[in-house]
Structure formats: C-alpha cells, structure tokens
Design a protein around this nucleic acid. Structure first.
Lengths: 108, 108
DNA sequence: CGATATATTCGATAGATGTCGAAATATCGA
DNA sequence: TCGATATTTCGACATCTATCGAATATATCG
C-alpha cells in the first residue's frame, strides 16, 4: 500500500489547500523552475524572483500579495530570504516532489 | 512551455481547493482504485462505494459527509449514480490524470 | 401502506478567508 | 539624514466554509 494514501493526509491537504487559490497557484507556478533541486537560496544562483515580481500582472494589492505569499510559505511550499530591499523566494523542491509523487501514485 | 503552467490555472486551482480538506482528500483517496480507466459507472464493475461507505471512520455527520462529497462532484473529481437506496461514487480518472500531469510537469 | 435505510436539503452558527488601504518596517542611495 | 523602494502588519469588512441537527426525499421490504 502506498505510503501516501494512508499517511500524511493532513499534511498533503494543507499543501493542496495553499495551492487551491488561482493567484497562489500562479505565484507558485511562476516560481517553479528558478532553482535546481535543493531548498537553499544559493541553488537559485540569483534567479529567484522577489515578492513584487511574483505579483506582476496579478492585479492585487501589495498587502494581498504578501498574504498569499505568506500562505505558500506557511504551507512549506516556498522559502524566502531578504536580499537588500527585496525579499527573494524559491520553491521547496522536496515538497513539490512529494505532491507530484502523491498524485503519481494515486494515478497508478 | 507546458500547457499546464500557462493555461487552465483557474480550473486546476478549483480541483486543488476541493482536495484541500483532509476529509475530502481521504474520501477521494479511498475512491481511487475502485474503477478502471474511464469515467463510466460500468467501469467500476459494482465495486464503487456508496456515499455512506465513504464516510466510515470519518466521524462526521451525514449532512457534512454529503456536503464534502458534493464538493468533490462540483469540482468534477467524482461522479455519482443512484443504485437503489444507495448512491454510488467513482473517480473521474481523466481529472486525476490531469492533476497528476500538472504536478509531474512542474516537477520536471 | 408503514417501517427502515440511505442520502440530501434546510437553517443556523462559528470561524476562516480574501481583499483593501493606511500605517509601519527595513533597506538602499544621494 | 532624508527620500525612495519593497514588503509587512494592522484593522476592517464582506463573503465563504465547515459543521450540526432537523426535516425531507427516495427506495426497499414486509
């Protein structure tokens, strides 16, 4: 039996809930691909977008953007680090792998 | 560029939102595997659980269970058909494939 | 028909969520 | 130090969501 189907349901639901908003899913999708595997800032090689960049074309207030980014962070989907005035973000690839694996198993 | 990253974000978020509740994710997980590929009732060969069975061990009121099952149906994740007193449910495998593909692409 | 089984609908309610603008915080550059 | 830039925090508000119990609907069985 799959390790995903019986365990960590609460944790998985938490992640899916965070991605269950169109703008948060957009933000997350944009962020994917900026980093190599691994969860450190260094693995982004300076390619990580800052919070403001993630909100481009989203047509929401800065405070709303901040809220959404924080939701993604609380769910463990992204990490953040201040770089000067900006705060750069990158995806936790491990969590993405977990979610991808969860659905891949379900789909088998 | 992926067809998923740029398109259908709203639709994908709708599905993820539906799965973003622990009990709904449990219900959906239980339901997966009862049917072969395809979205017809017949493909389940009588193995489809009814609504009541899906609520076993969930410790929620029948009305709450009904609400959650309906949310999954509204999101297109499951289908339902009355069979006598019971209403049997089965997963829309196409939607599961889409979600699985969405994360598989993100994870590449 | 009346009783039982299964599931939905309804009405109520507490709490969560999304959104904004204003104010606050942090950093950088002149 | 002052002003500009980037982001967060706060307070307010409307809406959505999860939950329950009671009532209702549908089907089966005796």
């Amino acid at each position: 039996m799959s390790k995903y189907r019986t365990k960590n349901i609460d944790r998985t639901a938490e992640v899916l809930k965070a991605l269950g908003h169109p703008n948060r899913l957009r933000i997350f999708s944009r962020l994917v691909g900026c980093c190599e595997k691994g969860v450190t800032y260094d693995s982004c090689n300076g390619l990580c977008p800052c919070v403001g960049e993630l909100g481009k074309d989203l047509d929401i207030a800065a405070s709303t953007l901040s809220h959404h980014v924080n939701e993604l962070r609380r769910a463990g989907l992204i990490h953040m680090e201040r770089k000067g005035q900006k705060i750069e973000c990158w995806v936790d690839k491990k969590v993405l792998e977990d979610i991808s694996g969860f659905f891949a198993e379900l789909n088998n």
